[in-house]
Every structure is written in C-alpha cells, then in structure tokens.
C-alpha cells in the first residue's frame, strides 16, 4: 500500500503517537519478559538464592521429551485450527454475502455466542458430548448404527488431542468470522457490482475480489490464530487436565506446571522463553510465506 511521501510528520508528532503505548507495553510486557529470560539462566527454585548457570536449562530443554511432546500437541492443534477454522470462517463470510443462505442475521449473531463462554462451561458441555456412556456423540453414533466408531473420546491417548481440538475450533470460530465480516464490509460495494456486471459469480468473487482485498486481514487473523493456539491452556486443562498421563499436555501447561507446580522457576522460565522463541519462529516463517501473494 502506498505510503505517500507527501504525508509527513514531525519527530515529536510521531513520538506523541507512539510513546505512551510503547512505554506501558515495555513496562508490563517486555521488562518482565527480560526478567524471565534472566531467571531462565539461573537454577532458581523460589528461594533466596539464584545461581547463574548459563544456558544449562536450555540444553536440558532441548532434550526434554515432555516439552517436545507438548510442542507436537500444540502443532497438531495449530494445524487443524488453521486449516479447518480459517477455511470455515472464510467460507461462511462469503456465504453471508450469498443469497442462498437464509436467516443470515441469526447465524451471524449466534456463531459468536460460544466465544463468550468460559473454559469451564466449554469443558462441561464437551464432556457431556464426549462422555462414554451417556454422551451425545456416542448416542448419535449408536443410533445411526456406527457402534464401531464409539470411542472413549477423552480417555484414549491416541485421539484425545483431536478430541480437545474440536471444541477449540468450534468455540473460537466466531472471532475470525467477525473479523472477516468486518473487513468485507470495508470493501466498497461498487467493486462487487461492477464485477457482477462482468458476469462474475460467487466463487470467482470470493477468489478474485474478497480474498485479495482482505488478504491483509487474513494475515492478521492467522497471526492471531497462531498466537492463541500456541498459548492455549485452560480449555484443555478443564477437559482433560492434560491427560490421560501427559497425552494432551500443551506447552503452556508444561510451563505452568514447572513454574507453579514444583516452583522450578529457573527451568520454568526457560520453558516459557523456549515457547516464546518457537512461537516467534513460526510467526516469522508464516510472514515469509505470506509475502508470496496469492
């Protein structure tokens, strides 16, 4: 996008726009993050002494199978969410512009409802759905004759990570959807009108107009999706507690457990920083990929 050279601003003006935000943000986010990095270089376990041990915590972390297991879980959740939630949200956004869908207003409104629910409620509801003997899902499977598909959805270590991803996708579908819809409403109507005159229909409209025009927004939403899924914690905690065993453990839970369970604050900080570096790496990769315009 053009940043016209005729738009100029003084140094002071720029400072005025940026400084307050940067100041607050630095004080509350960056300084503690730096402190956390410092802790990660020590053997601190919550007591009065912190011994500097260099990068030993990090070399432990690199060989910590539980950390990488949690990382893998995060990646599964992220990949599924990116693919399913994003495409659903984009699909629904374009559908909301089409004439085939009835009761648009209703759908648009209620799809956001789950977003306001707390993790506890979502955990509860999905337990009712997944419950082995009394769950809604298994009753449906039974009634349509798919007994063989019945599983202890939250108790089987092989599928539990997928079982906990579904509620996440469902609950937060409303957010990308809302952002997309707001972006689409920013596209001037006459662009669509002139396109329709050229015989452009639904799919083409979505592919050649909506998609490129909200491409920047999509990038932001993907960023948001990456960040929220790398940090995901409480929902899974409520549904399974990270179990069975550690099968549905994610990085944030692992960081929390090391820091606040056993007060290994040095190592816990290393986990936190490790998580942060990995997430940042993923964002960088994504940014590189996104530069190739579709």
């Amino acid at each position: 996008m053009s940043r016209s050279s005729s738009l100029k601003i003084t140094r002071v003006g720029l400072l005025g726009l940026l400084a307050p935000s940067v100041a607050i943000y630095t004080f509350v986010i960056i300084v503690p993050l730096a402190l956390s990095f410092y802790y990660s270089l020590t053997d601190w376990v919550g007591g009065p002494t912190k011994n500097y041990i260099g990068f030993r915590n990090y070399s432990l972390l690199v060989h910590d199978s539980l950390f990488w297991h949690s990382f893998k879980n995060n990646m599964i959740i992220l990949a599924l969410t990116l693919i399913i939630q994003m495409s659903l949200a984009f699909l629904l956004t374009t559908l909301f512009m089409s004439k085939a869908l009835r009761l648009k207003e209703l759908h648009r409104t209620v799809i956001f409802f789950p977003v306001v629910l707390s993790a506890v409620v979502v955990g509860f509801v999905w337990q009712m759905i997944y419950s082995h003997d009394y769950g809604i899902l298994n009753s449906i499977l039974r009634s349509i004759g798919l007994e063989s598909a019945i599983r202890p959805w939250l108790d089987d270590p092989k599928i539990v990570i997928y079982s906990v991803t579904v509620p996440l996708i469902w609950q937060y579908l409303g957010i990308p959807l809302m952002i997309f819809v707001s972006a689409v409403h920013g596209i001037p109507k006459d662009i669509y009108e002139s396109c329709e005159l050229d015989g452009c229909t639904g799919f083409k409209k979505a592919r050649y107009i909506t998609f490129p025009l909200i491409y920047d927004t999509i990038k932001v939403v993907v960023m948001l999706c990456i960040s929220s899924n790398m940090l995901v914690f409480s929902h899974i905690y409520v549904m399974t507690g990270g179990g069975p065993g550690t099968s549905s453990m994610v990085m944030a839970q692992y960081a929390y457990k090391t820091s606040f369970g056993s007060m290994q604050l040095g190592y816990g900080s290393a986990v936190t920083i490790g998580m942060f570096v990995i997430s940042f790496g993923i964002v960088l990769i994504f940014k590189r990929l996104a530069e190739v315009r579709v």
């Binding site: 003084t10 003006g13 400072l15 005025g16 726009l17 400084a19 307050p20």
Partner: peptide
C-alpha cells in the same frame, strides 16, 4: 500539518 493535538492528547 498541526500536530499538537494528537500529541497533546497522548502526552
């Protein structure tokens, strides 16, 4: 361009 206003506000 007058800048004092936004700047003033943030300050």
């Amino acid at each position: 361009v007058k800048l004092w206003k936004p700047m003033g506000m943030s300050v």
